[in-house]
Design a protein around this nucleic acid. Structure first.
Length: 434
RNA sequence: GUGGCCUUAGCUCAAUCGGCAGAGCAUCGGAUUGUGGCUCCGAAGGUUACGGGUUCGAGCCCCGUAGGCCACCCCA
């Protein structure tokens, strides 16, 4: 075991893994842009208060998972910062700071990058993980809720992941939720003697969480408990119905679950989670999001509605490999420059440099080893062509060997780049037909 | 933060009752001067995760720590 290893809950994305992430990030960005979202980047850390206020001081994310940064000399500086546990608070902070309420509303923003939570690691759960995030700030209407849910589902589909479902709920707003929460608390209080100890504690802190309990002893109670759906105010009920209607037109059939309660305080009205049906294990929430109509104001802006989602790229990658997707392969270099004289690395490097200047992906074999070894290495890494520099260099020529066809011919150095380009194009064409 | 299982070469894994740490793959080199994926030969690669303890002797038994996985908690 090496002396130094990646910190607990983090991992190196080796080339094969990184290739998968690059692909997912590319799909995410182009999809978001297609839907009219503009890429934005915010700092990986913010003032702790942004998260404490934005995400909610009594949430697990802030209470026990916030990655606080210790820096600076004075007590004032110490623990003033925290690594972002989620992207929304930072984006909303930027929205307020840069006066984006003066832009045409809603402002559509997208961000893909690492998030940090000091949680206990498990498969698919890391202390540093990647999220694809979109936020639409400044539109209270139900249509955009549907648009964003549909965007999330399309991402999974384009990534090659089938069978992703959306669970949908409305958790009300400031007008109706507090009353419902109190009612729920009272209802459970009357049955406190039937609650397991853990649930009894939650009753005091966050009664909504009881609905989410996986304790079998709770099943009967949960089924009988009053549901938020029956306690939405008229405005919330209307909004929720409209969201469902819009989704139906888009061909999206959500699974309604009045027990869907999300862990961040800022959510209002529409909340949803993406998950993979039939998947094993508990880390199968592939993404989630919702509406946060009070968040902008909470962070110092004018009252402004907003909605967005975060999708966990680590879990998408995990699900893809579990689904038996083809093993990720490190990208191959199609052209290798070899030489008859093992010592003459200068010529090989110079030729490769010329090819690269002409836009060709090429690698020079810079190891001092005989030609046979160089060819062996090129063949094993899957190169298509090998340029062999030998005596013909005196006549301004090199050999170009086609490793798959087994053919080889002399080419004028002056024509080399053009010749290679032409041959590679044939290879691509052939591969396309096969 | 709680509980359970696990950790031997870069990777996947062996090692009898507590008795000399091994194989395959990968890497590097050789198989007669400038021709490849196969084959053959060889080399290198280890503080058996780390630190203690028991023992004549520990990869193996005991304790602690770290890391991984699983179940909670929670979430992506």
């Amino acid at each position: 075991m090496p002396r130094y290893q990646a910190p607990r809950g983090t991992r190196d994305l080796l080339p094969a893994d990184r290739a998968v992430f690059l692909r997912l990030e590319g799909i995410a960005r182009s999809l978001a842009v297609r839907y009219g979202f503009s890429p934005i980047e915010t700092p990986l850390f913010e003032q702790s208060e942004v998260f404490e206020r934005g995400v909610g001081a009594v949430t697990d994310v802030v209470e026990k998972e916030l990655f606080r940064v210790q820096a600076g000399r004075g007590d004032q500086e110490r623990e003033r910062w925290a690594l972002r546990p989620e992207p929304t608070a930072g984006i909303v902070r930027a929205y307020v700071q840069h006066g984006m309420q003066t832009l045409p509303q809603p402002v559509r923003l997208t961000l893909t990058g690492p998030m940090f939570r000091y949680d206990r690691p498990q498969a698919g759960r890391y202390r540093q993980f990647w999220q694809f995030d979109v936020e639409a700030i400044g539109d209270a209407g139900p249509a955009i809720d549907a648009e964003i849910v549909e965007l999330g589902l399309r991402f999974y589909r384009e990534a090659g992941l089938d069978g992703v479902e959306v669970i949908l709920n409305s958790i009300g707003d400031a007008a109706c939720r507090p009353a419902y929460v109190e009612r729920l608390r009272a209802w459970f209080m009357e049955r406190e003697d039937r609650l397991p100890e853990l649930e009894r504690e939650r009753l005091g802190t966050n009664p909504l969480r009881l609905l989410d309990s996986k304790d079998e002893r709770m099943a009967e109670l949960i089924a009988a408990a009053p549901t938020i759906a029956d306690h939405l105010c008229a405005e919330c009920a209307t909004h929720f119905a409209a969201v469902r209607r819009h989704l139906e037109v888009l061909g999206v059939t959500p699974r309604l679950d009045p027990r869907l309660v999300r862990g961040l305080d800022y959510y209002t009205r529409t909340t949803f989670e993406f998950y993979r049906s039939g998947a094993e294990g508990q880390q199968q929430a592939l993404g989630g999001g919702g509406r946060y109509d009070g968040l902008v104001e909470l962070l110092g802006g004018k009252p402004t509605p907003g909605i967005g989602f975060g999708i966990g790229l680590d879990r998408v990658a995990l699900a893809l490999s579990a689904a038996g997707g083809s093993e990720p392969v490190a990208p191959r270099v199609p052209v290798v420059v070899a030489g008859a004289d093992p010592e003459d690395t200068v010529t090989r490097l110079a030729i490769a440099t010329r090819l690269r200047a002409a836009g060709i992906t090429a690698r020079a074999d810079l190891a001092v080893r005989k030609l046979g070894r160089q060819l062996e290495a090129a063949a094993r890494e899957g190169a298509h062509l090998v340029v062999i520099c030998g005596d013909e260099m005196a006549a301004g020529q090199v050999q170009v060997k086609d490793l798959e066809a087994g053919t080889q011919r002399r080419v004028e150095l002056a024509d080399l780049a053009r010749e290679i380009e032409r041959t590679l194009a044939q290879h691509r064409h052939g591969a396309g037909e096969a």
